[in-house]
Amino acid sequence: MPSPTLHDPQLARLADAHTLTIQHWLSSRAPQARTFTSLGTRVASTGLKIRLLNQALGAHYPPESPTEDIHADIESVKSFMQARPIPGWYWWLGPFTTPAHFPELLATHGLDYDGRGLPCMVAPLPAQNYPPLLPNLTVWRAQTLADLQVASFIRRTAFGFPDGEALTYFEDMPGDWLDGASPARLFLARAGEGEPAAIGALILSEGAPGVQVPGVYVMATLPAWGRRGLGAAILARIMDEATQLGHSFIVLTASRYGFGLYRKFGFEPLFDYAIFEYSQETS
């Protein structure tokens, strides 16, 4: 695929398909996870009490689907989630949601949208202008169970997961992260001879038949090590790896904390996801 332009509609479709596929994969791999495919969406729930890990992803209903069928489908998703021991969950909607008025239908079923979009961003490869990387930082691909265990600790600490939740994650599925042929590559970083303090992953999936799309995921740094260049070092490594694999672009979704870093590495906003939230504690 040729190097994309930042507002190429085909690129947006590739990025959207890839992102929703990987978000589903990340929430479906834990041993206690369950999945559900409805008329117009895919659902994955880890069963952990963390909304980010229980998600309905996209809305692509067949043309001419009766509105009553779509309403029934939304209720089927809610029923699936209500059977899980979770306080709430998210429904992601991208730019190719069909029907176009689907967000209005979600609102009638008690799902709330706060109006803040989650940017999906893209950068060309190879990267044009890395910011300067700090010396004395080491980045390596996870190779051992101990690497996976410390990565899980960094993830739950950096993301502020509730006490007792997601105590394990990467080590529950070692084949996904340690197999050299896996589409997922997990990286860790440390400063000097210190302990690992940051993680990030390169994950590949098809954005369209025969078109592999690389994405950046689970970027996390321990709070005590923030703004010390570890995240930048991991992002540079991920982009280099994707370049070596022959890719001409890479995508990610950006939290408000990471947005500035990603812009420094050449990422530009492509579109926003609308994230609707459903609270089962108050329903």
Rank of each mutant, 00 (worst) to 15 (best):
3 S>F: 04
4 P>Q: 06
9 P>F: 02
10 Q>V: 04
12 A>I: 02
12 A>T: 04
14 L>C: 07
14 L>M: 07
18 H>W: 13
21 T>H: 12
22 I>R: 12
25 W>P: 00
25 W>I: 06
26 L>R: 09
30 A>V: 08
30 A>S: 13
32 Q>K: 15
33 A>M: 04
34 R>S: 13
37 T>N: 14
37 T>D: 15
38 S>C: 11
38 S>P: 06
39 L>Q: 04
39 L>Y: 01
41 T>P: 05
43 V>T: 09
45 S>L: 06
45 S>M: 07
47 G>T: 13
47 G>R: 14
49 K>W: 03
52 L>M: 14
54 N>T: 11
55 Q>R: 15
61 Y>S: 08
63 P>V: 11
72 A>S: 15
72 A>Y: 09
74 I>V: 15
75 E>Y: 10
76 S>I: 11
77 V>I: 12
80 F>E: 09
80 F>R: 13
81 M>F: 15
82 Q>G: 07
85 P>V: 09
89 W>L: 09
89 W>Q: 07
90 Y>S: 09
94 G>C: 12
97 T>W: 06
101 H>S: 11
102 F>D: 04
105 L>P: 04
108 T>Q: 15
110 G>K: 10
112 D>V: 15
115 G>C: 08
123 A>N: 05
125 L>N: 01
127 A>C: 12
128 Q>C: 03
129 N>G: 00
131 P>I: 02
131 P>E: 03
131 P>Y: 08
131 P>R: 08
132 P>W: 00
134 L>G: 02
141 R>S: 00
142 A>C: 10
143 Q>S: 12
144 T>L: 01
145 L>R: 10
148 L>D: 01
150 V>N: 05
150 V>R: 12
152 S>L: 03
154 I>S: 01
155 R>G: 00
155 R>N: 10
155 R>A: 08
161 F>G: 02
164 G>Y: 06
167 L>S: 00
172 D>Y: 01
175 G>N: 09
177 W>I: 00
180 G>Q: 06
182 S>H: 04
185 R>D: 06
185 R>Q: 15
186 L>G: 01
186 L>M: 06
187 F>I: 04
190 R>L: 01
197 A>E: 05
198 A>N: 02
203 I>D: 02
204 L>A: 04
206 E>A: 12
208 A>E: 14
210 G>P: 09
210 G>H: 09
214 P>R: 05
214 P>D: 06
217 Y>H: 15
218 V>L: 14
218 V>I: 11
219 M>F: 04
219 M>N: 10
222 L>T: 03
224 A>I: 05
227 R>H: 14
228 R>V: 04
228 R>L: 10
229 G>F: 10
230 L>Y: 04
230 L>W: 03
242 A>V: 04
243 T>N: 08
244 Q>N: 14
247 H>P: 05
251 V>H: 06
254 A>K: 07
257 Y>V: 12
262 Y>I: 01
263 R>W: 03
265 F>R: 03
266 G>F: 09
267 F>G: 05
268 E>L: 08
270 L>T: 00
274 A>E: 07
275 I>F: 03
278 Y>F: 10
280 Q>S: 11
282 T>K: 14
282 T>G: 02
282 T>W: 13
